[in-house]
Amino acid sequence: MPRLPDTLRYWFLVLPALAIMIVFYIWPLLGIWQISLTEPTRGLDNYTRMFDSSAVTTSFILTFRIAFKTTIGCLILGYIVAYVISNFAGRVKPLMVALVLLPFWVSVLIRSFSWIVLLGRSGIVNDTLISSGMIDSPLRLMHNEFGVVLAMIHVMLPFAVLPMLANMRGISGAYVDAARGLGASEFTAFAKVYFPQTMPGVMSGALLVFVLSLGFYITPALLGGGRILMISEYITYQIQEFLNWGLGSALSVGLLVATAVVIALAARFVNLRSALLERK
């Protein structure tokens, strides 16, 4: 039997995974596109309704706003964590990395319910505040945007920390030493020399968190309590409650396109950066 060309042999290696993706992912996805264009009638009706509906517009805006706030929160908290782990952790570094990864071993569902236990009307936070006399009636800490963003920052934090950590690992301590040896204060050395080098990590962390947040379901559904309808929960409502497969599918396509646009914009931005770096 003649030997297959190398490239072909490698294709055979990825074939099983590819087959599963095509049969169980790409194919149904195309089905969704089809439903959005055929249910209940053939044409662009679903898309017209989607763009006309103020409820849909509101949900999309809300989704982007929450994703944005979550991203900012994760970047600020995550940067500090990654910075400390990379530069000052010393021997406890593996432990700290493990602690960052720990949440991955607990179901998102459990983590989100924990926030309900904390933030509910008679949750731990309100109980403590009332019994200490700081407030008279319980604060509304969940079933609003605040609660959703807080819990989402918690869930998304590792996704921000890990890319930044990987990036910072590649930055030698010699740069900051060099900056200080050349007369820069600790802060200037950080701001002018260290921080610019961490931008690739920050950008990829931001992109990851933002994109994951756009389509997130469990946490906003539990912490939002039906009052904060992000787009994926809105889709669930359309399909499960109203059996409106057509609009639900059109919304899914809308979310997919919106996400793709975000990634395309980000990729352009990141490319621009490296183009600046490798100025010819």
Binding site: S172, A174, Y175, D177, A178, G181, L182, V193, M199, L277
Partner: peptide
């Protein structure tokens, strides 16, 4: 003034 092993020129 200091010249480092590996130079430590700021890459950005």
């Amino acid at each position: 003034g200091m010249v480092f092993q590996g130079y430590a020129l700021f890459p950005t």
